[in-house]
Amino acid sequence: MPSLKTLRTRINSVRSTQKITGAMKMVAAAKLRRAQAQAEASRPYARRMGEMMSALAGGAQGNPNAPSLLVGNGRDKTHLLLALTADRGLAGAFSANVGRHTRTLITSLESQGKTVKIFGLGRKGNDYFRRYAGDRVIGTKNFIGKKTIAFEDAEAIAGEIIALFKKSEFDVCTLVFNRFHSVMSQTVTQTPLIPAASPPANDNPAGDAPAPYEIEPDDGTLLARLLPRNLAVQIYAALLENSAGFYASQMTAMDSATRNAGEMIKKLSLNYNRARQANITKELIEIISGAEAV
């Protein structure tokens, strides 16, 4: 039976932990709102960009001179996985989920005789991959100390990826990240970056297709500018989803931590009160039996 004093200090320490997790939950909720608003604001650009891409890519699809960013370089040997994780912890299994998914992917690709390389974004993922994937990691980046993710960050990453592609460091690039569905659920998703995903089929195949676009200066030049841009936009969108998902996951984790701390305090207080009662009873018995003996 622990003494009254140790119980009291334990209750106090659990209570201060509860305060901290409670505060973290509030902070995460506020940051989540901001991250969600940012993700929302970036959508119109991505949508228009997608429309333009499909208008241009349709014509380039069968063309033998189509840019390799769009159709790939014809090989399928080396895969680059661009894995997005969080920079901080205390968010449940958020980063571990991406890590686990990536590992499964590595195993299945390598069993098909392919080479896998990893580019890790986010500090947690870097730690994870250094341990499990070792020398497959060819590059890492994190955003520690940044309040919000700027488009320039995504552009810089896209630039690095394209430079690696030009050097034939890899043939196929896939993005692995947590897609934000709701506060309660984020699912690990993978999207192909290079070659770019084939544009969705025309919604109205009934011949009601929109009039073709005039293209200025010409579709090759424009595609050459549009494709890197599109890559950056996709990475940017994933980064925003990742940060919204991270705060949602942290909020959920901190909420359950706060609740668990509450339960723990309840149990400890019960024990404490029992011990106190027992002490009082013991003292009473001692006094009474002392009085009787006199």
């Binding site: 208008a55 241009l56 009039a211 005039e214 293209i215 200025e216 500018r225």
Partner: peptide, 19 residues
């Protein structure tokens, strides 16, 4: 400001994609 020169866009313009 298009890559090939400034473009004035009025309603009813032909479909166009430009840098």
């Amino acid at each position: 400001p298009g890559t090939e020169g400034d473009l004035g866009i009025l309603p009813g313009h032909a479909n166009l994609i430009t840098g």
